[in-house]
Structure formats: C-alpha cells, structure tokens
Simulated scan of single mutants.
Amino acid sequence: MSTRPNTTLSVAVTVEQLWQPSPGGSGTYIRELTEALALRDDITLLGVGARHPSAPPDPWGLPSDLRLHLSRLPRVALYESWNTLRFPRAAPRAEHIDVLHATTWAIPPRTAPLVVTVHDLAFLREPAHFTARGNAFFRRALDIVRREADMVIAVSEATRADCLRAGIEPERVRVVHHGATVPDVPVTAVRAFRARHNLVRPYVFWCGTAEPRKNLEGLLAAYALVVASGNELDLVLAGPVGWGDASARLAQAAAALPAARVHRLGILSESDLHAGYAGASVFCFPSHWEGFGLPVLEAMSHGVPVVTSRGTAMAEICGTGALLADAADPVELARAIISAATDRHDALAANARVQAAAFTWQRCAAETTAAYRAAADRAGLSA
C-alpha cells in the first residue's frame, strides 16, 4: 500500500558529520536540509550520531528542537561497526521510525526503509586520493547501498550517472539538487574584508580545499594569462590545504606570478567567506569534477558572475549565470574570466541571481520527502 502524501513520516537522519572539525559541503547539506525538513508538517525528525558530550559547535548547529539519539560508541567505532558488523541500530527499538536516511557514506543497518544520499563516488574516480582504509570503508559502504538502499538520492545528474555505472538500478536513484542560503552582505562588510586582506584591485575569487581535482594549477595558469593581458584583476584563494601535492604545486605556480596579485587567505569565517563572494568581480571554479559544486551556487546567489567547467555537475545548475570553459584549457579559462569581468559582467550577474533563486533548501526538502515516501512504498510499507 502506498503512503499518503499528507501522512506524517518519522525519519531518523544521520547528523554525525556536523561534529567533524571541518564538516564541509556534506555538513552544509545536513544542516540546511534538517532545518528545511523541520519546518514541514509531514515530517518528524530524529537526529542520529555518535557519542558526544554536547551538541555540534556553532556555526554547524541543528534545529533547536531536533531530538537527538547519540550512540554509546564514539565516531570511529560507530562507523566501523555500521560498516562491517551492521550494528548497532540507529534508533532505539522503542522508537517508531518510518524511514532511515543516511546522509553520508556512514550507513546504519537497515531497520526501516533506507534512503542514502550519495554526494559523489570520488573513491572510484581517484582512489589514490584516499588512504587504503578510506577506500575499503567507502567500497563496503557502496556494497551496502547496492544491497540495502530502497532509494538513493544523488545530488546531481553527474553523480546519478556515476551511481548507475556503479551498478545501482535507475529506478532506485533520484536527483535532488542542493539549495543555497547566503546572507545579505552590506557594502561596509565588503569594504572591511577588502581592507583586512589588502585587496585594492578587483579580484577573481576561488574557495575550496586545495586538492588535485580542484584544478588550481589550471586556474593559476589561466590567471597568468589574465595578468599578461594587462587586466587589473587580482586572484583570491580561500580554503584549507588538502592532500596530495596540490599545495606544493600551487605554491610553485603562484611563485611565478606577481606576489602582490595572488592572495592566499586560508580558512575564512563564514562571514568573511560570504564577504569574499560578495566583493568578487568573478568567481572561477574550474574543477575537473564535483559531486555538486555548492560554491558555484553560493556565488551566483550573491549575484557574482561565474566561470566554471563545461561537462560537469556545475554546468547543470549555472544556466545563463555563468560562462563554461574547458577546465583543461587555460586559454579558454582566461578568456572566460576576462569576459565575465568586463563585457558580460552585468548580464551574468543579473542572470546568476535569477538562476540561483530556483535552488532552495525548501525545494530540496520537498523532493527529499518524496524520496522518503518512494522508499517506504518500495519497501511495501505504509507510513
């Protein structure tokens, strides 16, 4: 019997990622999705995590009224136990749960219809970027998804295609795009940000983790051509150091550019990050691939013209608010950056806001709720 649209579903959702030192895009997804789901009258939520003495630290908070069930096991032990032993349960036996939602690759045992969000399958694309232990964990998790998931939420068509290639049947995979929530940034905050970081010229902004797939070398090569053209744009890079030799190669490439023109800011506070977006002339995000590419949507939400990679998940969401280029072609990237900053700037900025407005967490929550109902129906259960 199928679930009725107006029936309230009790959903246990994993929120452990929010206690990570750097929750990243997955953390943003969990925080924003749970807030949007908590506003719905057809969903009741139970947050599931490992043992912790307190709630997640700010700014990675959960809805204030969200009930939590924390395991007696710490994170590493809980994840390994779920991954290998399929134990313990995510929720107490006495708790009625209609649907279980694993928001990352940490997947509790299937004690109710199971929904799993797949952000990407990076470990299949680039296994060298992960430890042997990490690769083993992710591959076991993928096997669990194949066996147990009633519904898979892919965050983009590109990720859906990867899921199908990994052997998950099409009827079990739904695309649910992220939303974007960005604060209004007053002009005074942008001025203060620029003053703190000595940004006296217009700038191209990039943010993320310095790792090989982000193609920072390609961005620096393109930026060198922008400088050689006589353009006055600076380059501002924000975010943590990643893995591999990306940071060392980035430093080497940056050393060939005028020192005063490349600004490496490291990890920014949330307020400074959004001031960095809002003050940019162009946001350039030339990754070779992403599961979704949330920074692109955030930049467009601020009305900033975007240059990003053709044929990727980012291209799905850009519409006419961005210019697409071959990520492997610095000449094409440079031309797009200059065009986005000059002759195409105003039109792209206006289109960016309009395009980004269609991607809301409320829509994400509605489509996620539909995936919950589909999972329950697929499992042959009535909510």
Rank of each mutant, 00 (worst) to 15 (best):
L121D: 03
L73D: 04
M314H: 10
A375H: 01
T308S: 12
H177I: 02
Y79M: 08
M300G: 10
T320H: 13
T131D: 15
G167D: 07
N135H: 10
H69K: 03
G291A: 06
P286V: 10
A376E: 00
G167N: 09
S382A: 13
A228H: 12
P305D: 15
G167H: 07
D184L: 08
W243C: 10
R264G: 01
G311A: 14
G321E: 03
D42A: 13
D98P: 09
A128E: 15
R378E: 04
G239Q: 03
E367K: 15
G24L: 15
P186Q: 07
E298S: 03
A228R: 13
P53G: 12
D234G: 14
L164H: 11
P92A: 15
G49Q: 01
T368P: 04
A154D: 08
V116G: 00
C364F: 04
P183G: 08
L233M: 12
T3D: 05
A91H: 07
L66V: 09
D150V: 07
R110W: 02
R373V: 05
L381Y: 07
D162Q: 01
T159G: 01
A356Y: 07
G61L: 08
S71T: 10
V282I: 07
P23C: 09
G321M: 07
E211R: 05
A375K: 00
A254I: 06
P295M: 07
P56I: 01
E290K: 00
T117L: 00
P23W: 02
Y203C: 10
N351Q: 08
L114E: 00
L294R: 06
A275S: 03
E316V: 01
G24W: 15
A228K: 11
D143L: 15
A356L: 04
P57C: 09
H345Y: 06
T103S: 10
L268K: 11
F283N: 01
S64P: 11
A50Y: 12
G134N: 06
A371V: 14
C364D: 02
P21G: 12
A222Q: 02
N215T: 15
V175N: 03
D143R: 13
E211C: 08
L333C: 02
T7H: 13
P305T: 15
A376P: 01
T181Y: 13
L142G: 05
A251P: 13
L381I: 13
R201L: 09
I144Q: 00
W60K: 09
P53C: 08
P295K: 03
I43L: 11
P109D: 02
L297N: 12
A77H: 09
P56Y: 03
T104M: 03
F359E: 09
A50S: 15
H177Y: 05
Y203W: 10
R264N: 07
V152T: 05
Y372Q: 02
T14K: 00
Y79A: 06
I97H: 02
S10L: 12
N198C: 11
V331D: 14
F193D: 06
V307D: 11
V48Y: 01
